[in-house]
Design a protein around this nucleic acid. Structure first.
Lengths: 341, 341
DNA sequence: TTTTTATGCGCAATCGATTGCATATTAAAT
DNA sequence: ATTTAATATGCAATCGATTGCGCATAAAAA
């Protein structure tokens, strides 16, 4: 069964021409006659020839592969971004190599190394929660490999990035709660070090102040933003002398945790406490009540990063100017925050 | 900034030795003196050398890359399998290239082509819903490229595969419902062509018969198993003259749809109608009530496929014997099926 | 008819790492 | 002091595709 893989040399031998001609014929080179082109194509089919990208990559110096690093593909946000990247990249004959850092710094560094060694033509990444130093990213940039960051990003690296206007998303979410006549709005936030959480916090705070509400530090709970953290954080809020009448969680996961904690105590959502998450994860449509949340435009984010990548490889010779793209989030209003009347 | 990438020749030149020696030194070849090894390693660091996997791959004939094809990485089941594959593969210096077929046959064929051209060392796949012909898989096999299928598989291709004992999972789920004193159990099933749905259907049916319950064709609704289909299917069931007292859905998505339809009609779960899904998707923990479901052992499935892959590349010379692995599912009992008393 | 210009294809080097075989040097054995 | 064995490294081909340069042959222009 296991016949040897045919090469352009095999085709050449059969037709009594050289590999150069075959190579050119396959690429539809103008200096090759139509007759030989046809013959080559026919023989290629006959021998079941399939080009060896590895050989070409070595010669050309481009692998036509984009490396993608995400904390985890398990999260619909990231897989959706990947989908957006693929859409654009595939159209330009690029394949993607998806890698997961599992939010571990060391794994991220190792992955970068692996991708460089695999000679990917570029890297698109969203860095790990545990990432403190950005030297590994700077190394990529210094090697002249196009690097684009999305969602989680850092200005200091000096590369192009695509992010969401987290501030605005949070602002609108809180604004919406205020319009629902909520007066005492709590906030579940993540590690401040990560800019997205910091931005969402800012949006929360500003919305309060702009609407004449006071900012109360005791209503802000910081955690790791997983489901369990949401439960814990909500319990803390429920032990306050005066309960909040709304909670804006900076992640859907923690929002779901909060929802479970509320249900356990038989607190009505949204009548007693309204709830808003962030991320528009698929499960937010499945909860009871369905969760109001902020859509992160994941597919568009993927599209945008891929387009920036293509621009950069296209203009590798030109002086490089980092480009920042900010996407506008969309508030998805559902029952968890809609008070009647 | 963009200094040229160093090669073994650069290292060789600096140390006034040949590339052969450098290559061997880097691989810790026994016939190279410790002194030169040290010198080479030092100079490699100094020049910031990083091996070019592409060149090695071309020479060796192995890329150290495994191609993975999944319908969509958006689904936690698949991304979890991928994670399981990576765990094992990375430990053996393999990288993975994840591709999505989006459940489209043509895309799947094109992806196979791309992976072959990229000279991956093997392909691990779960085929698309739309896949009718398996010639593209057979082509992979005939080229001598290790191919392992998981979850969705087909005996006729003659390759190793790892599947879940869907029959057993369904049987246990229905058995559990019967123990909860349900007597009239409906079933939401997918396209029969896909073996997993057929197996789940068989398990459902057998469990009924084994427990002395009759099988009623009118209680089985076939659909595409998405959330919306679940809603539709449940509505059909609710329009029957005699209502079921339980529903076993062959996918969590359709189960969630059914749950929504039931809530809309104010039918109590599980008191009036108990509900069981299949897949243990993360959102099943977030629903109210939490959904009883069947865990598909996704991580173990990934581990198993990767291990089989490693076995196969290890023994490429030996005669190939397809290996079938069947994993035991686990019933996760939650509130949606637990009747009191 | 001679000169120009296209046209079609071959030669050989190249990309970077690997490896069988040969060779030089040194150490051990006789 | 030879011969033998062990040690350390070099030579050169190879993996498959690409491409600048050059050389024919044929067609067009002078």
């Amino acid at each position: 069964m296991k016949r040897e893989r045919a090469t352009i040399h095999d085709i050449a031998k059969k037709l009594d021409i050289t590999a150069s001609t075959v190579s050119r014929a396959l690429k539809d080179h103008p200096r090759i006659s139509e007759a030989t082109k046809k013959a080559v194509l026919k023989e290629a089919k006959n021998l079941n020839y399939q080009p060896n990208h590895i050989a070409a990559a070595l010669r050309i110096g481009r692998s036509k592969i984009i490396g993608i690093i995400v904390p985890t593909a398990d999260r619909s946000f990231f897989s959706s971004v990947v989908r957006g990247i693929e859409e654009i990249a595939n159209a330009s004959q690029y394949n993607v190599m998806i890698c997961q850092s599992y939010d571990i710094f060391e794994k991220e560094v190792a992955t970068i190394e692996a991708l460089i060694n695999a000679r990917v033509d570029g890297i698109i990444a969203s860095y790990a929660k545990g990432t403190e130093s950005f030297d590994h990213f700077i190394k990529v940039k210094d090697k002249g490999i196009p690097l684009i960051l999305f969602d989680r990003s850092n200005e200091d690296i000096g590369v192009s990035n695509v992010i969401l206007d987290d501030y605005r998303g949070a602002y609108e979410a809180v604004n919406h709660l205020i319009k629902q006549r909520c007066k005492r709005i709590a906030h579940l936030t993540g590690i401040k070090k990560i800019s997205i959480y910091n931005e969402r916090f800012r949006g929360y705070r500003e919305a309060l102040l702009d609407n004449g509400l006071s900012f109360d530090e005791s209503l802000v709970i910081e955690s790791d933003m997983q489901l369990e953290d949401g439960i814990e954080s909500m319990k803390k809020l429920l032990s306050l002398p005066v309960l909040p009448d709304a909670v804006f969680a900076a992640s859907d996961y923690s929002a779901m945790g909060a929802m479970q904690a509320l249900k356990e105590r038989n607190i009505r959502i949204p009548e007693d406490i309204a709830l808003v998450g962030f991320g528009n994860e698929p499960f937010t449509r499945f909860s009871e009540p369905q969760l109001t949340t902020v859509d992160q435009r994941s597919k568009e984010m993927g599209n945008a990063t891929a387009e920036i990548f293509l621009e950069q490889v296209g203009g590798l010779r030109k002086p490089f100017v980092p480009k920042k793209t900010v996407l506008k989030p969309e508030l998805i209003i559902r029952k968890s925050s809609l008070k009647k009347g």
